[in-house]
C-alpha cells in the first residue's frame, strides 16, 4: 500500500479522532449512548485501519500480539473480579453495593469497572481476530482484487 498516499494521509488524520471517540464512548457510556462493547469495537477499528493501510507488521509493533493476548483475558478478569470482590466483602456476586460508599456512587463505579472490562476484551478480541486473519493472508497485488 506504499503508493496509496491519499489513503495513508486520510487514515493518519482519522485514527486519532477515532480513538478519542472510542474513549469518550467508553467513559461516558452511563451518560450518553454507548458503553464498553461499542467503545471496544470503535477502538479496534482504529487499529484495524492502521493495520490495513500500513501493514499488520507495523500494527503489531505498536500493539504486540502478546499484549493483545493478555488484554483479552484481562478484560474478562476485571469484570469477573468485580463480581468476586463483591463476594469477598460479603455481598452477592456482582452486587455493586459493596464498592465505595454504596448507593448511586457504588452503582456508578461498578458500571464503570465492568464496562472497562468489556471494552478491553472486545477491543483486543477484535484486533486479535484481525491479526489472526491478516497475518495468514498472502500479500496481494492491487490487480488481484
Amino acid at each position: 500500500m506504499d503508493h496509496h498516499s491519499i489513503l495513508r494521509v486520510v487514515s493518519k488524520l482519522l485514527i486519532p479522532p477515532i480513538i478519542v471517540y472510542a474513549l469518550y464512548v467508553q467513559w461516558h457510556g452511563d451518560f450518553g449512548p454507548g458503553g464498553g462493547f461499542q467503545a471496544g469495537v470503535i477502538f479496534a477499528v482504529a487499529f484495524i485501519l492502521y493495520g490495513l493501510v500500513f501493514g499488520v507488521e507495523a500494527m503489531t509493533e505498536v500493539l504486540p500480539t502478546s499484549v493483545i493476548r493478555v488484554a483479552m483475558s484481562l478484560g474478562v478478569l476485571i469484570y469477573a473480579g468485580t463480581g468476586f470482590y463483591a463476594l469477598l466483602v460479603g455481598h452477592n456476586f456482582l452486587d455493586y453495593e459493596s464498592i465505595g460508599h454504596g448507593g448511586h456512587h457504588a452503582q456508578e463505579w461498578g458500571i464503570l469497572l465492568v464496562e472497562l472490562g468489556v471494552g478491553i476484551t472486545v477491543a483486543s478480541v477484535m484486533i486479535g481476530i484481525f491479526v489472526a486473519f491478516a497475518s495468514r493472508t498472502p500479500k496481494l497485488k492491487d490487480e488481484d482484487w
Binding site: 452511563d30 449512548p33 458503553g35 463480581g83 456476586f93 448507593g103 452503582q107 461498578g110 458500571i111
Partner: peptide
C-alpha cells in the same frame, strides 16, 4: 436504583450484569 442517565447502560451493566459477563 442506579442513578445513571443512560437506562440501557443501567440495565446491561447492573440489572443484567450476569448476562453481560
Amino acid at each position: 436504583d442506579i442513578g445513571v442517565p443512560n437506562i440501557v447502560t443501567g440495565i446491561l451493566a447492573s440489572y443484567r450484569g450476569y448476562d453481560t459477563l
